[in-house]
Design a protein around this nucleic acid. Structure first.
Length: 575
RNA sequence: CGGGGCGUGGCUCAGCUUGGUAGAGCGCACGGUUCGGGACCGUGAAGUCGGUGGUUCAAAUCCACUCGCCCCGACCA
């Protein structure tokens, strides 16, 4: 590839609308351009990276026994109505009508479509298991697309779906995909961590996310310093709390009501009363499945985890009650709510159990109780793990470990779905006894375009991108200092042809630009190996090879250059 | 959906408060000098000032509406 004729529109300055580094660098390196919010053109260099990632994904999935197919991007409403997601999926699902006024949507994911296919084909346990995947553009009309390719509306995804006769086989495939994902991300040259995850809108009961570790990540994850426990904070368990002996022995002063005019939040009241937030009990009212109101209690310095609340209640939908609903049910505005005398079902986080000298709302405007003693003054219907885990607390799985927190970019997720879709959509088969049974399913996604951004978030410096060799758009940058000079041009061209003949991927910077411009552009687009051909070196029959990542440079002879470079690439790819 | 910000040559921005016929740097074209980390000199092309409507003798500038883009939030009392 010759730079002079390539479509690589680099920019000297950061684009005005980019915030995160991967977005800035992708645009500056001439790899993407925005078309609309969350929608981008992929220019040639970006597409090359995408193809590389896709190739790795295909090789590993094929090796793991999955088969590639391609499903349509538009699907009819009927399938989504059948699974119930036409209603449930909400506005992220981009809907439209065809010329016959029939409802369609752009696929945000393909459980319905694939399940429909498989149920129409598979009849017998003999045809199972199956693992089918595709690499395709998805569309989710995100509330707030942001950060370039990290959260786009249109994005490229690999999605795989597996079908099994029984749970054991499905679990086996889950593990198979888990291991395959580890190989894929390792081959892509990324630092990542698999973590336990919530199943979200996709559904199911077991899930891991693969998080690329990066400060700019949207997800908070925690992991144990001494064992291999790691989880998304959404999912992370909290070690069961035991009230300390001292807490239990202290006698508490009597309950008192104090005036707290206009002080609603824990921070406000804590400041007003000069008490630390951990002495507070927050009372939060939720509407469960659209009707019942339930109060949840967590300590003032903790955050409630709604996913845990939902799981504890065994209900589908748990949303915060609005102010009017709360007032109607309790007679008081949120901000002054407390468990004492509250006429609602109350669930409490374990950390609330046995609290003494606590502060709660008084269920009366502008008033709070102090010196609240949980055991003496109120009894929730149950104690459960309801809060977010935080860094520094004990590991829920091992004795000595403490949790550390990180930021991550989710680039893959594996789900055990069970029969969620096969039952609602009647994807059944006949077992050896001739009984009709619903298939067990799993699904497995990788955000290809997001992976591109994540790789940059993790691999860049002040000068630009530093591609891991395995996914670099090209492997070698040939940089003649003065290409117009005949001798340099001849040597460069010869080396270029030789490298191409050896099957290497080479970008030849044959532009009539000053060296500084070429160096800057080269660093920006991040090609791993840079070969510099300058007049001084060539006089001695030598050229320079420089690593983009660490700047390490070595001189090699021109005659052996192609062979030496090929060896360097081969060596690096092996590592 | 709520809050904030921005929209002016290809890019990054100034000009707007206080209305008077549009600027800079980079990029681009041409000529010359240069040539190992974003050169220098000269010449030049390029902008319906996001759109619509209004106020005014006069609007990039003031007003209204609208479209687009960015950021924060959109559930923790």
């Amino acid at each position: 590839m010759r730079w002079s004729t390539a479509f690589i529109p680099t920019l000297k300055e950061d684009p005005a609308d980019a915030e995160v580094i991967s977005h800035k660098l992708l645009v500056r390196a001439g790899m993407i351009r925005q078309v609309s919010r969350g929608i981008y053109d992929y220019l040639p260099l970006a597409l090359r990276v995408i193809r590389k990632i896709e190739t790795i994904v295909r090789e590993e999935l094929d090796r793991a026994g999955a088969q590639e197919l391609l499903l349509p991007i538009a699907s009819p409403a009927e399938l989504w109505q059948e699974s119930g997601r036409w209603e449930l999926y909400g506005k992220d699902l981009l809907r439209f009508k065809d010329r016959h006024e029939r409802d369609f949507c752009l696929g945000p994911t393909h459980e319905e479509v694939i399940t429909d296919l498989v149920r129409r084909v598979v009849r017998s346990y003999r045809e199972l298991p199956l693992n089918l995947y595709q690499i395709q553009t998805k569309f989710r009309d995100e509330v707030r697309p942001r950060f370039g390719l990290m959260r786009g509306r249109e994005f490229i995804m690999k999605d795989a779906y597996s079908f099994h006769a029984d749970m054991e086989d499905c679990r086996r495939e889950y593990q198979n995909m888990f291991d395959t994902y580890k190989r894929i991300f390792t081959r892509c040259g990324l630092k990542f961590r698999p973590v336990e995850a919530d199943t979200g809108a996709i559904g199911g009961s077991l899930s891991h996310e693969f998080q690329v570790l990066a400060e700019s990540g949207e997800d908070a994850i925690v992991s144990c310093g001494s064992c291999d426990y790691a989880a998304n904070v959404q999912k992370a368990e909290v070690k069961p709390h035991r009230p300390s002996a001292r807490d239990l022995k202290d006698s508490s002063p009597p309950l008192r009501k104090v005036a707290t005019p206009d002080k609603k939040s824990v921070a406000e009241v804590a400041n007003f009363l000069s008490l630390p937030p951990e002495k507070f009990v927050k009372t939060i009212v939720y509407k469960v499945d659209g009707s019942e109101l339930v109060a949840a209690l967590v300590r003032g310095d903790h955050e409630i985890n709604e996913l845990k609340l939902r799981a504890t209640l065994h209900r589908e939908e748990v949303i915060l009650a609005d102010e009017a609903e709360v007032e109607k049910a309790t007679g008081v505005a949120p901000g002054f709510l407390g468990p004492i005398g509250l006429k609602l079902r109350i669930l409490a986080d374990r950390a609330v159990q046995g609290m003494r000298g606590a502060v709660t709302g008084a269920n009366e405007i502008n008033a709070h109780y102090v010196d609240v003693d949980q055991e003496r003054d109120f009894t929730p219907s149950a104690f459960a793990d309801l809060r977010m885990a935080v860094a520094g607390e004990p590991c829920p799985r091992c004795e000595q470990g403490r949790l550390e927190s990180y930021r991550g970019i989710e680039v893959g997720q594996v789900f055990y779905l069970g029969k969620k879709y096969s039952e609602t959509m009647a994807a059944t088969y006949l077992d050896p006894e001739g009984r009709e049974r619903a298939m067990e399913m799993g699904c497995y996604g990788i955000g290809i375009s997001r992976l591109l951004a994540a790789a940059i978030e993790q691999n860049h410096d002040e000068n630009g991108i530093i591609w891991p060799l395995a996914i670099a758009p090209l492997q070698i940058l040939l940089l003649p200092i003065n290409y117009k000079e005949e001798r340099i041009q001849n040597v460069t061209n010869e080396l270029y042809r030789d490298l191409l003949k050896r099957g290497l991927e080479v970008l030849l910077d044959d532009r009539d630009e000053r060296p500084g411009v070429k160096f800057k552009d080269g660093d920006l687009i991040g090609i791993p190996l840079r070969v510099i051909l300058g007049a001084k070196g060539l006089e001695k029959g030598r050229l320079e090879v420089r690593q983009r990542r660490d700047g390490k440079t070595e001189e090699i002879s021109v005659e052996k250059a192609a062979e030496a470079i090929q060896a360097m690439i081969a060596e690096a790819l092996k590592a």
